[in-house]
Design a protein around this nucleic acid. Sequence first.
DNA 1: GACCAGGCACATC
DNA 2: GATGTGCATGGT
Length: 210
Amino acid sequence: MNLTLDSIYKRLYAYFGPQYWWPGDSVFEVIVGAILTQNTNWLNVEKAIKNLKEAGLLLPRRLYNLPIRRLASFIKPAGYYNIKARRLKEFLDFLFKEYKGSLKIMSGISTPKLRQQLLSVNGIGPETADSILLYGFNRPIFVVDTYTKRIFSRHGFISEDVDYATVQNWLMKNLKKDVKLFNEYHALLVKLGKEYCLKRRPRCEICPLK
DNA sequence: GACCAGGCACATC
DNA sequence: GATGTGCATGGT
């Protein structure tokens, strides 16, 4: 079959079509979603975001002023709501301390510095930081997640226990650094993982990469 | 009822 | 430095 990174992308795109990521109306919504979706089904995240939206709270200033206990109650459907409320607050503290609460000012910062700053926020790890950079700020950064590792290791490109940075470097070295490509590629890997590579119910026999 | 989900920080050895 | 554990709801 001789799969390559490029041919895998082409196949997935031909099979699944565009994924229209990130689902969200604003940069802030992307950031909130990125934190809420940590180890969590997106459907649950949507419920939490809907709660915030309907309460008119999906704005940096509003969330910044909201008591953490109340924030936690709004995001309950997303699970881990206490720790995630704290993580959202940690980000907001950073946003207001560094950028006066302005995502617009924040968007003027270079990608390496922005990434470093995001990673310094307690509760934001590599995947969350890179999701924010790619889907929130349109920076050409490849987002690595469990599906990415699982799929590429299953197809023999990498071993399954490699660390985040190694996978990311490998991908970015071998692909055109293009926001649109990285956007769709990651989303398509998630789609493939969800539909065909579930841990207990692998359906490799009908995988579009077969 | 078991299993899983678009991680991360922290404890312990 | 590797390995284990808590965090928690809702869908399949």
